[in-house]
């Protein structure tokens, strides 16, 4: 059940929601969402997995925690949306190609450098086709300005104990597998 999966990952109980709509009203991006947070939780309660994962709601969540702050039942939709993204990613569902590339590079950097490396990121992002030609041109324009300011994507140092990060990652992946069984 999707609700159980969500609550396992996020520690939130979507069933506790009584549908007041405070979250949707407070959400700064609900205007662009397929379903507002309230309806999203409702769909989760009804176990409509397909519709839930198809929606753009959790991808649009800017994690501003407005909903969390207001919720009379102490539920955090922000964390629920992280959980939904986790679930989607595991099933290979991304809202668009850009996000997919962005995520993959980020994770790669985590494991390779232990930090996010802007310089390498920009190169890889463009190389993998994370940006279309039009955006690229505009970005180059912006990039030039930034460059003039000395705001250049820089390469960040690797951390020393990279093996610790790897081991933590492996432990998480292992636990995940055990949970499934």
């Amino acid at each position: 059940m999707i609700a159980e999966e969500v609550s396992k990952i996020s520690g939130e109980n979507p069933f506790a929601c009584f549908q007041c709509g405070d979250c949707t009203g407070s959400c700064p991006v609900s205007f662009a969402m397929d379903y507002g947070p309230r309806r999203m939780i409702h769909l989760i309660q009804l176990n409509l997995e397909e519709e839930v994962l198809k929606a753009n709601t959790h991808w649009l969540c800017a994690s501003c925690y407005n909903c969390t702050y207001r919720c009379p039942r102490n539920i955090s939709f922000t964390r629920i949306s992280y959980a939904l993204r986790n679930i989607s990613v595991k099933r290979g569902i991304y809202p668009n190609k850009t996000t997919k590339i962005f995520y993959e590079i980020f994770l790669d950097h985590m494991l390779k450098y232990g930090r996010f490396n802007e310089g390498i990121f920009v190169r890889e992002f463009v190389a993998k086709g994370g940006k279309g030609l039009k955006e690229l041109l505009r970005d180059i324009n912006l990039g030039l300005k930034l460059w003039k300011k000395g705001k250049i994507p820089k390469d960040v140092d690797k951390i020393d104990k990279l093996d610790q990060i790897k081991k933590i990652y492996e432990a998480c992946v292992k636990e995940e597998k055990e949970d499934k069984q």
Binding site: S10, S63, R85, N86, V89, Y103, L107, Y169, C172
Partner: peptide, 10 residues
Amino acid sequence: SVIPSYDYKF
């Protein structure tokens, strides 16, 4: 906000 989206526990 990226890694939590990818793997919350990690």
